[in-house]
């Protein structure tokens, strides 16, 4: 599966953090989900809805991004929240990591 660069525009990622101070924003972490061809698409959609509370439409958007581009940035948030989300996604055996935003 070909890797792709993180999209520059993610209109629905990390809205909750926009009110943070500059130092908080500087140390933002990205929650990334990577493609594993074994996962059922409908399962990935379900997990995104469950973990993030997203609508089906938004969950399917990110599922398709994972499927077609190899990965999707699911959230931009603090280290603590990123750890929480990664752990939740890994409970469902999705390939998720947290990466410091550069």
């Amino acid at each position: 599966m070909a890797a792709t660069a993180i999209p520059e525009i993610m209109p629905d990622v990390g809205q909750e953090e926009k009110t943070g101070s500059k130092s908080e924003l500087d140390s933002a972490w990205l929650v990334v989900c990577w493609n594993d061809p074994v996962n059922l698409m409908v399962y990935v959609t379900h997990v995104f809805q469950t973990v993030f509370g997203w609508s089906r439409q938004k969950a399917e958007f990110h599922m398709k991004q994972v499927h077609n581009q190899g990965k999707s940035v699911l959230a931009r948030t603090t280290m603590e929240k990123a750890e929480h989300y990664v752990h939740q996604l890994q409970k469902y055996t999705l390939h998720a990591t947290m990466e410091r935003e550069e």
Binding site: D36, N39, Y43, H46, T50, Y92
Partner: peptide
């Protein structure tokens, strides 16, 4: 159902 989905996906990914 929610935890069974987790369990089943572990088995599925483990098989893969």
């Amino acid at each position: 159902i929610e935890w069974l989905l987790q369990v089943l996906n572990d088995v599925r990914v483990g098989g893969w």
